[in-house]
Simulated scan of single mutants.
Amino acid sequence: MTRVHVSRERNSTLVKKKKAVALRQHGCLACEVCGFDFLQTYGERGREFIECHHTLPISSLGEHGKTNLKDLALVCSNCHRMIHARRPWWSIDDAKAALIGANGSRAQS
């Protein structure tokens, strides 16, 4: 029996658009969970550096499904790893709630 593996590529153009929208709206690229800003912390090396999380898994979109800007969240590397640490994956709100609970206070926004 032969298995066919369908690979879905991530859309780098859409990620660039997501970053551009965030820069226009907020003036920075800060994590949507914890507020971490790579530029603020690392200087020029951190400019426009942030990860893009698919809030709807690509595998759930079907063969012809499309990812929209609203299906993406900008997150730091640590928050992204925590979201995907184990199943079920956390939503952005789940990650924020865990951070608030761990710190006993509100996360940066």
Rank of each mutant, 00 (worst) to 15 (best):
G46A: 13
H64Y: 09
H54P: 06
I83K: 05
K18E: 01
C79E: 12
N68H: 11
R106G: 02
C52D: 05
S91H: 00
A95F: 01
L69C: 06
I92L: 03
D71M: 09
D93P: 00
S60G: 09
E44G: 10
G27C: 09
L23C: 00
C28T: 08
V21D: 01
S77Q: 12
I83W: 05
T41V: 14
R87E: 04
M82V: 11
A20G: 02
Y42P: 04
T41C: 08
K96R: 11
V21K: 05
L72D: 10
S12C: 04
V6N: 15
L56V: 11
K17T: 06
S91Y: 00
V33D: 02
G65E: 01
H84C: 03
D71Y: 09
A85H: 11
A20T: 02
H26G: 07
I58N: 02
H80A: 09
L74M: 11
N103F: 04
R8A: 12
S109M: 02
T67F: 03
N103H: 06
H64K: 14
A102N: 07
K19Q: 07
A97Y: 02
W90L: 14
L14S: 05
D93Q: 12
T41L: 08
L69K: 06
H84T: 01
A85F: 04
E48G: 14
R24K: 10
I58R: 10
L61H: 04
I83C: 05
A102V: 04
L29K: 09
V4C: 04
H80L: 09
W89Q: 05
M1Q: 15
H80Y: 06
R8K: 11
R86Y: 11
W90N: 07
I83N: 04
